[in-house]
Every structure is written in C-alpha cells, then in structure tokens.
C-alpha cells in the first residue's frame, strides 16, 4: 500500500493535498481537477477495479463546503483506498469518473440528488430518488429534516370520508 501512495505522490505531487492513515484505512485528499486522472491511474496501473461507492458530505463550512468521497477496492490484492475531493458552495462541480468505472453513473446521480453537486461529463445527470421537479437537496445541512411543506404534491383526497370533510384527517396529526 505505501508504495502505491509514494508512487502517486511522486506522480501527482501538485494534486495530492494530504495523505492520512487511520486504523489501516488510507485516505487521500485530492484536487478536483485531477480526480479523473488519479482514478484512471489507480484503476489501470494499480488494479483498483471496483468502485464501491461515491458519496457526498456537507461539511457546512465557509470554504469548501462539500466533499465527494470515492471508496475504491482492488479485488485481487484486497486493498482499499479512499479519495476525497472538496469543492466550494457557489459552484459545486466535480469531473465525472463514469469514463473510468461505468458503475459510477448511479453513485454520482445519487450524490447529485442529495447534495446538488454536479458532475461534469456525466452522461445522464438526473435525480435518483426524489421526484424530478423537486427543488431542494435533502441531505444538505440547511434542509429541514421534516422537509419543506408543500414541496412534493400528494394525490388529492377526492372521496369524502365518512363524517369528515374531504381531506380532513381522522387523527389530528400535523400535516406537512
């Protein structure tokens, strides 16, 4: 593992900002511009053929608010590595790694859906879980847990419930 890190550091000395090791897990903090190149080298030369997950994080800081995290595995040698990319709030754009692993397609769509991070060069960047006309990004820290009232339409309650006005609930819970 250390020789891979050293080789990467020698090759991308300007792009790798930080290397941390914690309980046998190696994490590299990488510049967004170099992520595709580093991923391609890791896959083609060091055999990290399995892109386990790509996810986002909202650090809720002034600078470089969002983080995209890539978990990679070399199935043959049983090695794992984690790459992190940090981006600002105003223009959260990261180059897409779908050209390296095709599996990254849905992972990036999910990250886009939840955090609003756009992936440049993604073939089909649509929302994954939320309705396509949804306006918010639900895993951002400034999004309320219970959601924005009225942001997702419900089907209309057209049939009159017995003894109740249309749409009125039996239990007096809070409507969202």
């Amino acid at each position: 593992m250390t020789d891979i890190i050293q080789a990467l550091q020698a090759r991308f000395s300007h792009a790798i900002r930080e290397t941390t090791e914690f309980r046998g897990e190696t994490t590299l903090l990488v510049d967004a511009a170099a992520i595709v190149d580093i991923c391609r080298v890791l896959k083609e030369e060091y055999g990290f053929n399995y892109c386990v997950d790509i996810c986002g994080a909202d650090r809720f800081t002034e600078e470089e608010r969002f983080e995209v995290i890539y978990n990679l595995t070399n199935l043959e040698k049983r090695l794992r590595i984690r790459l992190k990319v940090r981006i600002g709030e105003e223009n959260p754009v990261v180059p897409s790694v779908t050209s390296v692993w095709r599996a990254a397609n849905w992972h990036e769509r999910e990250t886009y859906d939840m955090y609003g991070i756009r992936f440049e060069g993604h073939p089909d960047l649509r929302r994954m879980y939320m309705p396509e006309d949804f306006e918010y990004y639900p895993l951002r820290k400034d999004f309320p847990l219970i959601g924005v009232p009225g942001s997702i339409p419900l089907p209309e309650f057209d049939k009159k419930a017995p003894l109740k006005e249309a749409g009125q609930r039996y239990n007096r819970g809070e409507q969202i």
Binding site: M130, P144, G147, E156, F157, R169
Partner: peptide, 12 residues
C-alpha cells in the same frame, strides 16, 4: 422529508 405522515391524507 420523503415519507407521507399517514395515508389518510389521500385515501379514506
């Protein structure tokens, strides 16, 4: 945010 808080909001 994604879960309807009771289906009686749209069916009896």
């Amino acid at each position: 945010y994604p879960v309807v808080q009771g289906i009686d909001q749209f069916i009896p």
